[in-house]
């Protein structure tokens, strides 16, 4: 009898245990099934953190054109085109220093920094991309002579991949020029039917993301230039663009697009499906006025150049 009771108790506790296991399994399955993207970008989860504005240290901010976050050194760099300088901020967004590459910067726009600490800065007025090596104290333009149909090249925005390969937009030919880490021209990706190629970014898996302002489309290429996905269009509905000018890709594959005339940021999942939009026209903190560029760092912080308000708005 006692044995039977024990067995019954065992059965009961077994059932309870198995129920618990079921619950835990269900809980785990739920988190596996629900895409990380959906969790990372639910409405209301993107909040304005702070802004970088003019202060006594930075002085008057001119036309802001580029942002880059150096993951190795945890530094944020910002180009001030009007004042011919690059500003550096630490991870807490405190001003650290500024430099003008010994006067070599004339109208710096987009910038990136590779793992060796060397800068690449687009100089549209010179028609070149400058390679700035602070350690070596050298500044020289990248050699475009190996690029086919290189006369002239109109460099737009740039991006770097994890292997320090440099991706430069050539606006006149609607293509992405790819240089290896030693700055040798490697290959080009033609953006067929491109009308107004305005931005390029490289995802963590090496895919190339481009944005066309005129037709309002985002194109995703694999690293060899094979078109994988095209999405986005101009229009009045939610998830459609007025005048998209810049894009960024987060580590989880979410694609953020800044719409300058909507004064908003639109987010899409990796399949190009619209998820949400945030911010609106305004002057107060967290609002945007003719935003012009977006950058997302590995920690998921979204840096937006709010050109109309002469500041950088940071969201998370």
């Amino acid at each position: 009898m006692t044995v039977q009771l024990h067995m019954a108790n065992d059965k009961c506790s077994g059932v309870i245990m198995s129920k618990k296991i079921h619950l835990v399994t269900l809980f785990l399955i739920f988190f596996l099934i629900v895409p990380a993207t959906a969790l990372c970008a639910r409405k209301g989860r993107i909040k304005h953190l702070t802004s970088i504005t003019r202060n006594a240290e930075t002085g008057r901010l001119g036309l802001l054109s580029g942002i880059f976050f150096d993951e190795n050194r945890k530094r944020l760099y910002l180009t001030d085109t009007t004042n011919k300088r690059i500003l550096a901020f630490d991870v807490d967004l405190k001003f650290v220093s500024q430099f003008n590459a010994a006067g070599a910067l004339e109208a710096p726009t987009c910038l990136v920094r590779n793992s060796k600490g060397q800068f690449f800065v687009v100089e549209p007025t010179k028609g070149s991309v400058l390679f700035v090596d602070i350690k070596q104290r050298s500044v020289k333009p990248i050699d475009f002579s190996a690029v086919p149909e290189a006369d002239p090249i109109y460099a737009g925005n740039m991006a770097l991949d994890s292997a320090d390969n440099l991706y430069i937009i050539d606006k006149a030919k609607q293509r992405i020029l790819i240089f290896d880490e030693d700055l040798r021209f490697d290959r080009q990706v033609l953006v067929k039917e491109g009308k107004g190629l305005s931005d390029v970014k490289v995802g963590s898996k090496g895919n190339i993301y481009t944005l066309d302002t005129i037709d309002g489309s985002v194109r995703v290429f694999d690293n060899q230039g094979k078109l994988l996905l095209t999405f986005g269009k101009k229009g009045r509905d939610k998830g459609e663009f007025d005048f998209p000018v810049s894009l960024a890709v987060c580590r989880k594959g979410l694609i953020y697009v800044v719409d300058q005339h909507k004064h908003k940021v639109l987010a899409f999942n990796r399949r190009g499906e619209f998820l949400l939009e945030f911010s609106q026209l305004g002057w107060r903190e967290g609002r945007l006025h003719y935003p012009s560029y977006i950058y997302v760092n590995k920690a998921g912080r979204i840096f937006i150049l709010d050109r109309g308000n002469s500041r950088v708005s940071i969201f998370e």
């Binding site: 054109s65 085109t81 010179k126 006149a172």
Partner: peptide, 13 residues
Amino acid sequence: FRKVNTHVGPGVF
């Protein structure tokens, strides 16, 4: 067309 903002485009733009 050597300015910060330009209307450079593809082809004989």
